[in-house]
Design a protein around this nucleic acid. Structure first.
Lengths: 204, 204
DNA sequence: GGCAGACTGGATCGTCAAGTCCAGAACACG
DNA sequence: CGTGTTCTGGACTTGACGATCCAGTCTGCC
């Protein structure tokens, strides 16, 4: 009975159904937030019935948990694929982030960050999962900045670890401002100002 | 009928009741978010009845709008009172922000910022009001940095306006990370790293 | 002091979303 | 095959929350 809500022990078909539900929920939550997304909408969007959904998830909280895990996975994977450990990579990463924000006019903000305001104070499990996601994200940023540091691309006296945390904070804040202003300019300004101060030569 | 929901045309007693409702709502929203705060809780907390609440506000959306306005007012007023246009003022501001975050272990995040994730995509009026609040906040930061710039306290080549926006973004992101980690360290690191790069001499 | 409009109390309603239940179909595995 | 488990469908229950209504009281002003 308890095991029914765990990912393990599913048939291939079951796993596919579960994934379909999570994907639908991720999209809906990204668009309209956790509270505004009903399990009814998720059911419709995924094309499943009540009993199916509650077969895979104990309750809405468990579904939200799965959404957070998935979103964190996606972000970290994207980040790792970016390869921003070189000046060119950093530039590409910066351009990608800004271009995406510009495309959507800031709507949605950061897929992970925008969940914090909705869940941190009301769902301790989700909060912990989000924290874990951000820690992993920060770790990849730090790694990249260590590479840049070793190659002599950081301003003197800058600690790569600290700069990694700062870059993540500035990115999150920039995305938040872009979201609320419906304009990517604040994000662009923040990122470029920080990078201009911390990075030697390249990066814009 | 329409005028009944406007602040104008209230007696002193009415204005007090209305303020009591808004204050209660501000506190509850700050603690548990918009969606998790029911008008029932607001009624209890403010000690008013349904009809009183709906006498002053057309619906929950109008109440939320008032909460956003009030929160923005409070923040900007605090910010203006901080007087961070000197090195000492900047240091005091930085210490105050970090100390507060440390006291509450990040809980609640930024009173204004944490509303963005909850409202930006679901309530266009609230989003616009939030954007206005952030614009005013950014304006006071820019002003302070202009003062510092004039006194020669900014690193060469730094534009005070850009740095103001960057500082706001880094602050927001730092508060968000502190909120999700339940630890003020990321905020402290982000703020100090940015200020160390951008400010000559002082500020830690 | 009286009247118009501001203000108050609390019972009540309608809606809607979360979660349950049961019966039956599909599937894995021997 | 066939049998036990996994999976599926959809109607149903329950409860909470936003919102309404109406009957009345207070307040400021002429």
């Amino acid at each position: 009975m308890a095991a029914a809500h765990e990912p393990a022990g599913l048939t291939a078909k079951g796993a596919r159904t579960r994934a379909r539900i999570v994907d639908a929920a991720v999209a809906l939550v990204q668009r309209q937030g956790v509270a505004e997304t009903t399990v009814g909408e998720v059911k419709n969007s995924a094309g499943v019935s009540s009993s199916q959904l509650y077969h895979y998830f104990a309750d809405k909280g468990a579904l939200v948990q799965a959404v957070v895990e998935r979103q964190a996975e996606l972000i970290v994977a994207t980040q790792e694929r970016a390869g921003m450990g070189t000046l060119e990579g950093l530039q590409v990463w910066r351009d990608g982030v800004v271009a995406h924000a510009r495309e959507v006019a800031g709507v949605g903000g950061c897929p992970l960050g925008h969940l914090v305001g909705q869940l941190a104070e009301t769902d301790e499990n989700a909060r912990a999962e989000l924290a874990e996601g951000f820690r992993r994200w920060a770790a990849t940023l730090r790694q990249a900045l260590h590479d840049l540091h070793r190659a002599g691309h950081l301003a003197s006296g800058v600690d790569p670890d600290s700069l990694g945390d700062t870059l993540l904070a500035t990115l999150q804040g920039g995305l938040l401002l872009a979201q609320v202003e419906r304009d990517a300019t604040p994000l662009e300004t923040a990122l470029d100002t920080l990078l201009a101060l911390a990075v030697r030569d390249g990066a814009r």
